[in-house]
Design a protein around this nucleic acid. Structure first.
Length: 770
DNA sequence: GAGTTTGAAACT
DNA sequence: CAGTTTCAAACTC
């Protein structure tokens, strides 16, 4: 997920990550500036951080025959009725938030709203707009509440939106111009409009610029809720075969996940992108913010379009990422949470990856059911900045619906992993994340991706119950993962770095199950294809995080970069480190203490400035006194940004016109040029050597030519000399003049050479006869 | 690699 | 909130 390194933003496809159009201000813009590239910071927050996320939990589900209210009920199951197939119900982790109604509006690409099963547009795009939940807005939302969509290819696509009360979500297919959606969203929820950006709906490889633009123009207004802990549920249900959309084929493919956002006063823009390709791949992307740190990615790959089983594989493609489902959500004050949900429907989907957290400053929280601490083993992957948890045993199950679902990764070779749950089972085969970009906290950023480990692991959340430690869900460290203890009411949390979840991104299979513990008939086999430190498919996406050297802080204070970034220490040089799974309790306490001191402690320090200011600026500003803000002591300089009005530095030289700064920049540029030149020279030299070898080797090995030492052997030389002596003797016997003798010898030498050369290409020794 | 400098974080 | 202390990274030698 530090993501916050801006570099992370580049990790994801533009059409997904581009949240430029998102406006954080209360005043909804008439139209989102798709190409503006500037996000409107909220007036409320002096320094809008990239991690701002929607405060209101919301549930989005695809396909719902049942009324929204039913969908929001925990444990409820929607059964397919008639020709439409709709299933998948998610329950909120917090019962309080389950009461709201949500509506799903689907609009075809032609701007027609479908109140009934409708046909997806040719581009297979569905835009999900979140609409204010005010009762008055209900009418507008009610349009096109149909949740089932039939693709021209006969496939049926159902969307069920479940949201916290007052958090309806409207799903619309982007139409040309797509202003209807924007207008709709704008007209609603004026009280506290929330703009959603998003929505790319198209096949992975078919996302066109036009589509992206259309998506950008879509804005969704949402009623802002300051309430805390509203779970966001996200359910995707798809029936592959339209014909099979009978009651029997009830839930074919279901991807269930819950994204929870809590207590964020500011509703962040949210984008939901759904893309589907006929029978091949679909892409679902929910992208609230551009910041990778806030990115929650669930990728689902491949598929079995017409599975003999009722379970339908849902081919989903994340843009440019192949079969993937991308879910993004960020909350301003609280990291997004992804929670496996419990539903009555069984889910079996090929899922490629599930990622929670982001580069730079992951702001996602994943809640998993806790088991006992003994059930969890921390897995350290050398070189990886991600942490893994191995679930040893499955102990607890909760029928309350709070039980999280274990998420596991299996090898990309496709070992399906299924976690048995009383109500929901989700098995997702995952396609290798080819180009998936990750976000990593520190410029690592990100999690780009790609060295992967092939070890199979069980990924499960620790089960330590920490009732006394109830971290503020809105301010947990980036990428914090919360694992609720079994049993509602006395929830225990395991505060884990989001990196634990990140591995799901690369796993071949992801199994989500809720309740009933972690029993896994097939075993939870997870194979972590994990981005290793600094290595990623996207190049610098994941930059290796520097190991810390803490000695006295136990790595439980913000002095420790690892801790400050919400990461476990891994491959560090620290002593007496408590920043690991073994000291989960202490770590949780430390996190809480930090948050008590500063609720913004785990938010990225570098965020976007207000309008008219630099794109990036330090949220608090520096306090340098002696460094002139031109050394890495200065956080501004370290972040490669200039000091701003928020800084309290003395003798600052880190400003635009500073000659010292320019000098440093020039020196840095020169150094970089030198490095590049050296690299280029090395590359060229290496290439030349390689080329030379490739040219010489075949001649030697193919028999078409051999190096001289291979055929000018001692014997050949001796024979040649004998021939020359023979000529000399002949000349002497014939009493030839010396000149003639020399000529005869030279001529013979020439003949010998010709024979040697002609024999060079032969495998056998050259035969030289005088 | 040891020692110094620096400024954020933590503490009072 | 300001001053002081602690801490670990950045820097220097």
């Amino acid at each position: 997920m530090d993501v916050v390194s801006p570099e992370l933003n580049s990790l994801l496809p533009d059409e997904i990550m581009d949240t430029e159009a998102i406006i954080m201000d209360d005043d909804p813009p008439a139209e989102s500036p798709a190409a503006s590239g500037q996000s409107q910071p909220s007036d409320d927050s002096p320094v809008p951080m990239e991690t701002d996320v929607p405060a209101v939990p919301e549930i989005v589900s695809l396909c719902s025959d049942a009324p929204p209210t039913q969908l929001t009920q925990a444990g409820t199951t929607s059964t397919p009725t008639g020709s439409t197939l709709c299933t998948s119900t998610l329950t909120s982790t917090t019962p309080k938030t389950t009461s709201s109604l949500s509506r799903v509006s689907l609009t075809s690409g032609s701007l027609q709203k479908l109140s009934a099963p409708f046909t997806l547009s040719a581009n297979h795009q569905i835009i999900l707009n979140k609409v204010a939940s005010s009762p008055g807005a209900d009418t507008t939302r009610s349009q096109g509440t149909t949740t089932t969509t039939t693709t021209p290819g006969g496939q049926q696509f159902m969307v069920t939106a479940i949201g916290k009360s007052g958090q309806p979500i409207v799903l619309q297919l982007p139409h040309t111009g797509s202003k209807s959606a924007s207008v709709q969203g704008l007209g609603e929820a004026k009280a506290n409009p929330q703009h959603f950006k998003v929505v790319t709906v198209s096949s992975a490889s078919q996302v066109s610029t036009l589509q992206a633009q259309q998506l950008k123009t879509v804005q969704i207004a949402k009623k802002t809720q300051v309430s805390s802990a509203g779970p966001i549920k996200f359910v995707f249900t798809k029936a592959v075969n339209n014909k099979g959309l009978t009651a029997q084929t009830s839930v074919s493919n279901v991807i269930t996940g819950r994204v929870l956002s809590t207590g964020s006063p500011v509703t962040p823009p949210r984008t939901i992108t759904l893309s589907e390709t006929l029978g091949s791949s679909s892409k679902i992307a929910i992208s609230p913010l551009k910041s990778p740190s806030k990115l929650t990615v669930v990728s689902v790959a491949s598929q079995v379009p017409n599975s003999p089983q009722k379970s339908v594989s849902l081919p989903l493609n994340m843009a440019h990422l192949g079969h993937q489902i991308l879910l993004q959500q960020s909350t301003a004050t609280s990291p997004a949470k992804v929670v496996s949900t419990h539903s009555t429907a069984q889910l079996q989907l090929p899922v490629q990856t599930v990622t929670v957290g982001g580069v730079g400053a992951p702001q996602f929280k994943t809640i998993f059911p806790l088991s006992t601490p003994s059930n969890v083993q921390q897995i350290q992957v050398p070189g990886s900045r991600f942490h893994y948890v191995r679930l040893v045993t499955a102990t607890t199950g909760s029928s309350t619906g709070h039980a999280g679902s274990p998420i596991t990764n299996s090898s990309m070779t496709a070992k399906p992993m299924v976690v048995n749950t009383t109500q929901v089972r989700m098995s997702v085969p995952i396609v290798p994340a080819q180009t998936m970009k990750q976000v990593v906290p520190k410029p690592l950023t990100s999690s780009g991706q790609v060295l992967t480990t092939q070890t199979q692991q069980r990924l499960i959340m620790p089960a330590t119950s920490l009732p006394q430690i109830q971290p503020n869900l809105t301010n947990l460290p980036p990428g914090t993962v919360l694992a609720p203890a079994p049993g509602s009411g006395n929830m225990g949390y395991a505060v884990l770095p989001a990196q634990y979840v990140t591995q799901l991104q690369q796993s071949a299979y992801v199994t989500l199950a809720s309740s009933s513990g972690f029993s896994t008939p097939t075993g939870i086999q997870t194979q972590a294809r994990l981005p290793l430190n600094g290595l990623s498919t996207s190049g610098a996406a994941f930059r290796p995080r520097k190991p810390c050297n803490c000695t006295k802080s136990q790595c439980l204070k913000l002095y420790c970069d690892c801790f400050a970034n919400g990461e476990f220490c891994q491959n560090c040089n620290c002593t007496n480190c408590f920043n690991n799974l073994e000291h989960e309790t202490d770590r949780a306490k430390a996190i809480k203490a930090c948050l008590d001191r500063n609720p913004e402690a785990f938010k990225p320090k570098i965020g976007k400035g207000k309008e008219g200011e630099s794109d990036r600026r330090h949220s608090k500003g520096c306090n340098c006194k002696r460094s002139g803000c031109l050394k890495n002591y200065c956080e501004c300089y370290e972040a490669k940004i200039m000091c701003s009005s928020t800084c309290k530095c003395v003798g600052c030289k880190n400003f635009e016109e500073s000659p010292e700064r320019k000098t440093l920049m020039h020196l840095a540029d020169a150094a970089e040029v030198r490095v590049q030149q050296q690299t280029a020279a090395k590359t060229k030299l290496s290439s030349q050597i390689s080329d030379l070898l490739t040219r010489t080797t075949p001649a030697i090995t193919s028999g078409g030519g051999r190096m001289p030492y291979t055929f000018v052997t001692k014997e050949v030389a001796e024979v040649t000399c004998e021939c020359l002596l023979e000529q000399a003797e002949q000349a002497e016997l014939n009493q030839q003049p010396q000149a003639t003798a020399e000529r005869m010898i030279l001529e013979e030498f020439g003949r010998c050479l010709m024979r040697i050369i002609s024999s060079a290409g032969k495998t056998d020794y050259p035969s030289i006869n005088c």
